[in-house]
Amino acid sequence: MSLEEAWEAAVIAGKQTAQSQSYGPEARGGSCKAEVIISDEKIGFTKVQHPTFLMALTQKSLDTYGQNLPEGCLVLIDDTLTAPAALNGYRVVKLPILRTAVEKVGKAMTANIVAVGAINGLLKFVSNEDLKSAVFLHIPKGTEAINEKALNEGIALVEGA
């Protein structure tokens, strides 16, 4: 779950957070989702009802979850995806997240970390330092360099856009 690091970073930054994710067969692929609430106040209901931000990396999940979004919701999608008609009128940011992972970082698996960098680049909800600390909590030892590269490439995607 690529949002896990973002959420961890928010905790490091001292914010209230709640995260839940798809559970069951769909968690192994297809239209799985993770929901994160980051707040300065105590969180009541833990499910996301009015997202302010949505990221999708596959067409199937975009088609499933890119419906009935509240006004003003920012949408980040991989540039290989096609935004459905339901997203007309929303601010949709397309970034080459998957391609960056493969071509610039050199490992498709790092797409989630590229995405985390891109998310913070767009939302700037935590400092890049806190974000890096959070990512390092979730990666296997010995992969720090490649993940840091992935994170920086993700941030650069936004700053360069």
Binding site: Q19, S20, Y23
Partner: peptide, 9 residues
């Protein structure tokens, strides 16, 4: 299940 699978700090 709500609390069992909820992640919080």
């Amino acid at each position: 299940e709500i609390v069992g699978h909820l992640r919080e700090g």
